[in-house]
Simulated assay, not measured.
Amino acid sequence: MKKTLLFLALITIAFGSTTAQDRIAIGLKAGFNSTKIKLNDVPDGVQIKNEANSGFLIGAYGKLRLTEAFSIQPELYYAKKTSNISAIPENELPETTDYTFHTWDVPILANLQLIDLKAVKIYGVAGPVASFIADTKTDIPEWNEFKNTNWTFQAGGGIEFWRLTADVRYEWGLSDISDLASANIGQKTDVLTFSLGFKLIGL
Rank of each mutant, 00 (worst) to 15 (best):
L93T: 09
P94Q: 03
V120M: 14
T193I: 15
G202A: 11
G127W: 03
P43K: 00
I11R: 09
D190H: 15
K188S: 08
K118R: 15
S83G: 06
G27L: 02
A130P: 00
Y170H: 12
D135R: 15
T103G: 06
R65N: 14
K63W: 05
K3L: 14
V120C: 10
E75Y: 07
A14W: 04
D139K: 02
G31N: 02
W143G: 04
I58Q: 06
D116I: 02
F153N: 10
L114E: 04
G31R: 01
P94N: 02
R169M: 09
A30Q: 02
P89G: 00
L192C: 03
L180P: 04
K29E: 11
Y99Q: 06
S83K: 05
G173A: 12
D135C: 07
D167L: 06
T18S: 12
E92V: 03
S86D: 07
K29N: 09
T189D: 08
K81D: 10
L93Y: 11
N84Q: 11
I108F: 15
E90I: 00
T67M: 13
S86N: 05
G158H: 02
I201D: 10
I58G: 12
Y77H: 14
K49W: 00
E75I: 06
L6I: 12
T12H: 09
D116T: 02
D98E: 12
K199G: 10
K80C: 12
I185K: 00
D179T: 04
L64S: 06
A134R: 11
T67Q: 13
A134E: 05
Q21Y: 13
G27Q: 01
F7R: 10
G158D: 04
K137C: 05
N111Q: 08
I85Q: 03
V168W: 09
F7V: 12
T136G: 06
S195T: 10
K36T: 10
L200Y: 05
T138E: 11
L76G: 15
D41C: 00
L10H: 07
K199Q: 13
S175A: 13
F194R: 08
S83L: 05
W151C: 03
D44N: 01
R23Q: 07
L76Y: 10
L66P: 06
I24E: 03
